[in-house]
Design a binder for these strands. Structure first.
Length: 306
DNA sequence: TGCCAGGAAGCCG
DNA sequence: CGGCTTCATGGC
């Protein structure tokens, strides 16, 4: 069934390119799942998304977002896209002196911070370390095909697969994971799967924690450092105050927010934290959204969006 | 054209 | 701070 959601701050392609979700699969116009266009001409991007074992076909024509899903799952998907938040207001709150952030938010004004499954985010961002985004996509997809459950479908050949549960992933041996070219991340994934399957990593409890507690909890596990924990918090637990610092963000902070004089006495180890506090602390409680704008913008300008 | 060094949404010991 | 899996990319 098709449902329409209206928003001027929503862009499927920007969301797909924003580096938070690696399972938005473009649906080809020749596919039977491709949505019938509202108007005759525009048949632009359509994507399939699987989350929590649910399936959505989503497409867009201007400010009309077409959600093709079961009626009882509509609220789930609206929540997934963070439809309860006023992104117009977020952008309006940007400090007018910060011209870089203004430009970034303008370029990525259709970005949403998705509410993805915590377990999927844990594994996805453990995989992400020292990998390119296309590479991450391929690896996550492989895990789903190999270990995930197919969703109910007429023909099995074109079935969509859910992200594997902890138990399903734990069924893979370390050698098996190494064959998938996961490299040194294989041992992290192997142990995390067993931790989750056997209850040492308590996903339910994790979901009830606030940002600080979740960071503390997550970084206690093998293979999860501060950066990955922040990504899990931001994209899996919707702690939008989380501000992951990767190599792109480091570059941006140094090029656009660093001041030689101001930080000349700041220890190198805490430099980024200080810059973030000084420049993004004013967006108290939602700085992570600004992080996404600048991350997307820098990659867009570098022509690195694939 | 072919090769190699540097780097990729980092983390562990 | 060195090491780590693999591999697409850019410079020479």
């Amino acid at each position: 069934m098709n449902y329409i959601y209206e928003s001027s701050c929503f862009d499927l392609k920007q969301i797909a390119d924003s580096g938070q979700c690696f399972r938005m699969t473009p649906v080809m116009p020749d596919s039977p799942a491709f949505p019938k266009p509202l108007t005759c001409e525009s048949t632009l991007p359509a994507y399939e998304i699987i989350s929590c074992g649910k399936r959505l076909i989503v497409s867009q024509e201007g400010s009309h977002i077409v959600l093709d899903c079961q009626e009882e799952e509509l609220d789930f998907w609206k929540n997934y896209f963070d439809c309860g938040r006023d992104y117009e207001a977020v952008i309006s709150s940007i400090n007018p002196d910060d011209t870089y952030l203004l430009a970034a938010a303008q370029a990525g004004r259709g970005i949403r911070i998705l509410r993805q499954e915590p377990w999927e985010m844990i594994i996805t961002f453990v995989i992400s370390q020292q990998k390119t985004i296309p590479n991450i996509r391929a690896l996550v997809n492989t895990l789903c095909l190999r270990y995930g459950s197919p969703l109910s479908s007429e023909n099995e050949a074109s079935a969509s697969y859910a992200f594997p549960t902890p138990c399903q992933l734990a069924s893979a041996s370390l050698e098996e994971l190494l064959e998938l070219k996961l490299g040194y991340r294989a041992k992290y994934i192997h142990r995390l799967s067993h931790d989750a399957a056997e209850g040492r990593l308590d996903l339910l409890s994790l979901s009830s924690m606030d940002y600080a507690a979740a960071m503390d909890y997550l970084t206690g596990f093998y293979g999860i450092g501060k950066k990955v924990a922040n990504c899990i918090c931001l994209f899996g637990l919707h702690h939008v105050e989380a501000f992951p610092v990767d190599t792109w963000i480091q570059k941006i902070l140094m090029e656009h927010y660093f001041n030689e004089q101001k930080y000349r006495h700041t220890p190198k180890g805490s430099l980024y934290e200080h810059i973030i506090e000084d420049c993004f602390g004013q967006y108290s409680g939602y700085a992570g959204i600004m992080q996404q704008y600048i991350f997307y913008y820098e990659r867009l300008r570098s022509n690195r969006l694939n």
